[in-house]
């Protein structure tokens, strides 16, 4: 109950903003700024007027949203796994790190949207190209954070593992990975928001489905409530993904949070 009240207390600004926005846009009557009620109606029209046996979801909803989310998550998971694996190795092997670091710094300095022409030439337009763009664009925060986390493991943890003769595999999974986990999660969180951006951008230029494609489609047909509607969906999607991520982080890193508080 208390939590519900607290959440309500935090969210009171949302209806206030919506009401003010509604009043201002109705008064202004500018076609580029439709009132929220019009946007909501258009969203309903776009996604929720399907047959009841499909939970009223339209073809557009069933095609575009899962396609986008699927590519986003596929790219994010791939980048997370590869970035963590490579980062941990680089973190524990300072010699490799010194050779690879300049390359990493160069690669991550490239604005990922600039890679689109290259990846479009390399792969045909489609999910493969989009996932590649996402992976290449978001892998760096994970990789660099994992390397950082693995490099700064307390010497006494390492000594303990050596004294008790842990094998290489055991050291990796029981020591290096958990010790670097807080850093890895910080990287994954940055990557998640980047993945959303790259998902939309890649769909704007090279796609035949997805939320970004629908946005472009609405814009081309001068359907401004539709444009606003897709933007709202993207915002909600980002918010939901971030909240889910934070919940997962709280579970996985509970030891870290509490250990830091008590010692």
């Amino acid at each position: 109950m208390k939590r519900v009240l607290r959440a309500a207390g935090r969210l009171w600004a949302v209806p206030v903003v919506l009401v003010v926005w509604e009043l201002v846009t109705r008064a202004a009557e500018n076609l580029s700024f439709p009132p929220p009620t019009t946007i909501a109606a258009s969203m309903y029209e776009m996604w929720l007027t399907g047959p009841p046996e499909r939970l009223w979801l339209t073809d557009a909803a069933l095609e575009n949203i899962p396609a986008s989310v699927g590519r986003l998550l596929a790219g994010w998971v791939l980048a997370g796994v590869i970035g963590t694996a490579v980062g941990l190795v680089l973190g524990r092997r300072p010699l490799y790190f010194r050779f690879v670091d300049p390359l990493v710094q160069f690669a991550r300095a490239i604005p990922p949207p600039m890679l689109l022409p290259f990846f479009m030439a390399l792969f045909a337009i489609g999910p493969q190209m989009q996932i590649n763009v996402i992976v290449f664009g978001i892998i760096w925060p994970v990789l660099i954070n994992a390397a950082e986390g693995a490099r700064h493991i307390d010497r006494q943890y390492v000594d303990t593992a050596r004294v008790f003769g842990l094998s290489l595999k055991q050291r990796l999974f029981l020591l290096v990975l958990p010790a670097a986990m807080p850093k890895i999660f910080a990287g994954l969180r940055v990557s998640l928001s980047l993945a959303l951006i790259l998902m939309v951008i890649s769909e704007l230029v090279g796609s035949t489905d997805g939320i970004g494609f629908q946005l472009l489609d609405a814009q081309r047909s001068y359907d401004l409530p539709g444009v606003w509607g897709t933007i709202v969906v993207l915002g909600v999607l980002g918010y939901v993904l971030n909240s889910a991520f934070l919940a997962a982080e709280r579970r996985v890193l509970s030891w870290h949070r509490t250990a830091k508080q008590t010692t």
Binding site: Q156, V163, F164, S167, P178, A179, A259
Partner: peptide, 28 residues
Amino acid sequence: LAVVFQDYSRSLFPWMSVADNVSLPLRR
């Protein structure tokens, strides 16, 4: 050979339960 270090907080792994910490070296 086993070692008990001075700084217990940096010798026990905080991400493992006490029982897992104690049984850790038995893995070999």
